[in-house]
Design a protein around this nucleic acid. Structure first.
Lengths: 211, 211
DNA sequence: CTATGTGAATTTATTCACAGCA
DNA sequence: TGCTGTGAATAAATTCACATAG
C-alpha cells in the first residue's frame, strides 16, 4: 500500500493537489458524483489523462457511473496527507514573504506557515497575518519543531547562504522563490517558483507560438 | 528565420529565460566563454539538454571551445525579444499584487508592469513601487495601449470575470496567480502559477518520493 | 447506454555516447 | 585534445480507442 505509490509519475503527482481542491469544492457544493469529463472541464486537463492519473491508485470509479465525490475526497485527503497537519516556515518577510504570510495557503488545506524569520529588527516580534516573525539569527536556538519545509523569500544575494543554514538545521524541502538555482545535498528537495522566468516564458510563447 | 522557431519544444522554450538570465550575469562578470558543463552547474539542467536546447537555434558554439558569452547574449536577447520593451498590466493590488509591483521583474529584463488596476478607492491614484494604480472600472476607457499581457492577482471570486473583461479589452496572455482554472477563448494563452498547488506538491513529493 | 480503465500508439523530452571540428 | 552537435536509445507523458462492467 505504500510501495505502489513510488511508481506514480511525477506529472501525475503534480496534478493531485489540483484534483483535490476541485473535489473539495464539489463536495462543499453537495455534488454526489462526477465524471472524468466534468473534471476535465473544471481543471483543464484531458479526461483520458485524469482517468489514467486516477488509475494509478486503483479503480476509484464505477463504469457507466463515474466517481463518487465523497469517496474521491476521502481517498485524496488521505493520499495527500491532509488528515495530519503539515507545518512550514517562511524565511524572508519582504513584500513577497508578507503576501504569502497573509495568504498562508489557508483556504483549503492543512498545510500552514507557523513561523516566519527575518533579520529586520522592526519586523522581529511582530505578527504578519497571524504568523509570528522570529529573529533569523535565532534559527538554531528556536529549532525546526518537526517542520520539514521552508518557503524561501529572501533577496537573491542571501538565497544560497539561507538555504545552507536551513539544510544544516535539518530542513528537507525548500520552496524557492528566489531566482538563484540552489546547490543543496542530494537528499534535499527543492521546487522553484521563478516569477521572472514565468513571465518571460509567457512573453516568448505569446510571440512565437501563436495559437 | 521565423518559421523554424515554431518547432522549438515547449520544454526548451521554458528554459530560455533561465539561460538568458545566467548568460547576462556571466557577461556582467566579464566572462568571455562558457561551456555547456559550466552552464549546467549554474542552472541545474543536464549539459546534454543544454546543448540540445541550443542546437534548435543552429550552431551557436564552437567545438572544443564552448560558447562565446557575448554572442550567446545577443542571440538570446534577440530571440527573447529583449531589445524591444514589453509592457504588462497587473490587475488586483492586494498583498501579492503589491509584492509583484515592488519587485516588478525589474532587475534583468525589458518586461515591465506599467499599469495596475484595482477597485479600492484608497489605492486608486496612488503608486505602488513606481506603478500607478488605476480604477478597474475605467479599464475600457484607459485601454490597453499595446499591452498584450496581464498579471492576474485578484481574489479567486473575481478571477473569471476579470479575465473575461481583459479578454474583451483585447489581452492576449494572462499570468494567472489565482487558483481558478480560467475559461478563455482558444487564442488566449494562460500560464498558471498556483501557489497552494506548488506547496502541496512539494509536501507530497517529500513524503512519497524519498530521495 | 454510459463512462471507466487500460492496452497500444503516439508524442514529447531526456540522456547516452561519440564522430568530428577547432 | 576538449568541447560541440547530434544520431540513436531511452524514458516519460499524453492521447486514442474500445472492451467491459454497471
Amino acid at each position: 500500500m505504500k510501495s505502489e505509490q513510488l511508481k506514480i509519475p511525477q506529472a501525475t503527482a503534480k496534478r493531485l493537489p489540483l484534483y483535490y481542491r476541485f473535489i473539495e469544492s464539489l463536495h462543499a457544493a453537495g455534488k454526489q458524483r462526477v465524471s472524468s469529463t466534468e473534471l476535465s472541464q473544471a481543471v483543464k486537463v484531458d479526461s483520458a489523462t485524469i482517468r489514467r492519473d486516477f488509475s494509478y491508485f486503483g479503480a476509484l470509479g464505477k463504469k457507466g457511473y463515474g466517481y463518487n465525490v465523497q469517496y474521491l475526497l476521502s481517498f485524496f485527503r488521505e493520499t495527500l496527507d491532509q488528515d495530519e497537519r503539515t507545518n512550514v516556515i517562511l524565511v524572508g518577510v519582504g513584500n513577497l514573504g508578507t503576501a504569502l504570510l497573509q495568504y498562508n495557503f489557508s483556504k483549503n488545506n492543512n498545510t500552514v506557515i507557523t513561523h516566519a524569520f527575518d533579520v529586520d529588527e522592526k519586523k522581529i516580534g511582530t505578527k504578519v497575518g497571524e504568523v509570528p516573525v522570529y529573529n533569523w539569527d535565532k534559527l538554531e536556538e528556536i529549532g525546526l519543531q518537526n517542520v520539514s519545509i521552508a518557503v524561501l523569500t529572501v533577496p537573491a544575494s542571501q538565497a544560497q547562504k539561507s538555504a545552507d543554514r536551513l539544510v544544516e538545521a535539518g530542513i528537507e524541502g525548500l520552496l524557492n522563490f528566489t531566482p538563484v538555482r540552489l546547490s543543496v545535498p542530494a537528499h534535499i528537495r527543492v521546487h522553484h517558483i521563478d516569477l521572472a522566468v514565468e513571465l518571460q516564458a509567457l512573453v516568448y510563447f505569446l510571440k512565437h507560438y501563436p495559437l
